[in-house]
Design a binder for these strands. Structure first.
Length: 303
DNA sequence: ACTAGCCCCTGGGAGC
DNA sequence: TGCTCCCAGGGGCTAG
């Protein structure tokens, strides 16, 4: 599932692939009758306006805020894509098969006959015949158009916490943010996007293992040394995620269609029942549900 | 102001 | 083989 490293990898690749391209058309296959909030392309009336506004515009850059992908246009507007659980952006030469009502990639490469082509929900077509597709099996993704100069006041982005990999993100900021939810369980607090933006289920499990902290530990019981260790663990694990181009446990692919490799590096996530890999530790990885989400941890070295 | 729990969605896997 | 049930989960929303 796309967390900070997956979104980062996507944005870095998109910058190289789509900047300078002009939008010729946009297609939406979202047909969900239910969605939260009207202001997104799943609403047919919104999509109609969205399409009218962006056609003919040129992409001038891409960036990221938390887990949100931002595609900036030369008309002073930005396309915001939150990929949620199963969304991922793919770039290639796609063509629509009217008979099968499905998109597929033309030519050789990892996108040809890709399993995820069957779940393409949106396609942005450029004037040079290349396309950017949004594959989204569970249809949780959210796409909106926002005035670029109003980005930081946009409700989706306004309350987001600082980016854990930004230069201005310091240990004191981290401690302050964590302790603002002193009575919360650290696992949940770490994943609260309004405190820090970008950490999700996989990377929080891995960071807590690295810092040797049990996921249900109440924040106020963590001392300065533990929070310092966790701060470093969060940054280290996110950087490692980026180095391996993300985690493809679930549906995530890079825009060129290749999977990330971080899921081969898991110490705890989805390793329930397996032995802990920490040197000298004889513990076993256990799974626990915390706030409706699964947490994986070593029953011995994480305290 | 908080938080627990439901909901959106669909494929994959387990159990019968 | 085929049916049913459960699970994965980000985050918005509501009820308490």
């Amino acid at each position: 599932m796309p967390e900070l490293p997956e979104v980062h990898t996507t944005v870095v690749e998109l910058e190289r692939l789509i900047v300078g391209k002009t939008l010729l058309n946009v297609w939406s296959g979202y047909d969900s009758p239910h969605y939260y909030g009207k202001e997104q392309v799943k609403d047919p009336a919104y999509f109609k306006k969205f399409k009218a506004q962006i056609l003919g515009s040129t992409i001038i850059g891409t960036s990221r805020i938390g887990k949100n992908v931002l595609i900036h246009l030369d008309i002073g507007s930005t396309i915001l894509v939150h990929m949620k659980m199963t969304g991922h952006l793919l770039f290639g030469n796609y063509s629509y098969n009217k008979k099968e009502k499905k998109w597929n990639a033309v030519g050789k490469g990892p996108l040809k006959d890709d399993k995820w082509n069957g779940f393409i929900r949106m396609v942005f077509s450029f004037t040079d015949s290349t396309r950017l597709a949004l594959s989204d099996l569970r249809k949780f993704a959210k796409v909106q158009l926002i005035k670029t100069d109003e980005l930081h006041n946009h409700p989706e982005l306004l309350d987001l916490g600082p980016d854990p990999l930004s230069e201005t993100f310091t240990l004191s900021t981290f401690k302050e943010r964590m302790r603002s939810r002193a009575s919360g369980k650290i696992k949940q607090v770490l994943m609260d996007q309004n405190l820090i933006a970008g950490v999700g289920n996989i990377y929080s499990d891995e960071a807590l293992w690295l810092a040797e902290i049990h996921p249900t530990t109440i924040v106020k019981k963590l001392n300065d040394a533990q929070l310092k260790k966790l701060f470093r663990a969060v940054q280290e694990i996110l950087k490692k995620g980026i180095d391996f181009k993300g985690d493809s446990t679930s549906d995530y692919r890079t825009p060129s269609g290749t999977p990330g490799e971080f899921h081969h590096k898991h110490q705890v996530y989805r390793r329930t029942g397996e032995p802990c890999t920490r040197e000298g530790c004889t513990g076993t990885i256990e799974r626990l549900v915390i706030g409706g989400r699964s947490a994986h941890f070593c029953n011995t070295c994480q305290k």
